[in-house]
Design a protein around this nucleic acid. Structure first.
Lengths: 153, 153
DNA sequence: TGAAAAAACTTCAAGCTTAAAGTTTCAGGC
DNA sequence: GCCTGAAACTTTAAGCTTGAAGTTTTTTCA
């Protein structure tokens, strides 16, 4: 196979990844909206916080989620209004603030996460565990390449 | 392996897909912005149009791209301002309009598409052709499942 | 024929997203 | 102590995105 054919194949693979990702996200967005009156970005923030009981700084959140700082500002703002998260001052650094789930936020996220896991399980039901293995490696290779690119720039 | 372990694995796989997709999209967005002063949504619309020389109706565009009607309205509006696409009346149906690339849009997209293919080739360089095969099947299975769900709802 | 329903859009409000610019605070060197 | 640069954010402008509501035109069918 020629080099350009390989390039075309890689392009086709990317288009497949993109199509599948969009479909899944559309489904999740719809489910979150109907079942929990929330959005994907809010779910993502709460998921990140649920893994850090001590909370995360705004900058840590945006780095974990790979979204811009200003973006996190807005989403957290709305989650605070909802009563799902709270912001507290970081002792010794008046610039920073730490974001944590409230007890209500934790309880709500637990329900959302359980449903979410079920949705994903259903959506990926036709993917054999063996196929998942090779796929995971390929995806990690892609992510790794882009991470390293960042560093050397 | 228990059922719940499989569910956890599927969740992990999805998180990997999501992370890789976001990284790739961030890279493409950045490249399109710096290299061509355009955006991913505009590129997507032009890519869809480049495959249909006769043009696409607004509703066809939104169905191909899997985005809402209102969304397409805005993106096409801006592409018309740029001179990359044009809208023409559909004879026999005064509600509809057909969107096509202008000659300038075609030429511009040809340059963008060539660069885009190179970017993807580089990003997916570590993915072996064999791995791509299994991955394609898995992704198609996911997309298919969600498509069928749509129909039966 | 003449409603009523459907189709093809557009508009709107709300929220998400980014890059860039602006603010406040901190840390290091002199 | 004081200046300078960096860090941690927030704000802003522009654009993207959705779901819902609204408009015009076409189709259905009684």
């Amino acid at each position: 196979m020629s080099e350009t054919d390989i390039a075309k194949d890689r392009l086709r693979l990317w288009l497949r990844v993109l199509k599948a990702t969009r479909s899944v996200e559309t489904e999740l967005r719809e489910n979150l909206r109907q079942g929990f009156a929330t959005t994907l970005p809010r779910f993502d923030v709460m998921a990140a916080l649920s893994q850090h009981a001590a909370g995360l700084k705004m900058s840590e959140l945006s780095s974990v989620l790979k979204v811009s700082n200003g973006n996190v500002t807005g989403i957290v703002e709305r989650l605070v209004e909802d009563g799902h998260v709270l912001r507290e001052k970081v002792p010794g650094d008046r610039r920073a603030s730490r974001v944590r789930l409230t007890p209500e936020g934790e309880a709500e996220f637990a329900r959302q996460a359980a449903a979410h896991e079920q949705w994903i399980d259903g959506i990926f039901a036709d993917v054999a565990p063996e196929a998942a293995q090779g796929m995971a490696e390929a995806l990690d290779a892609v992510a790794r390449r882009l991470e390293n690119k960042d560093k050397t720039q």
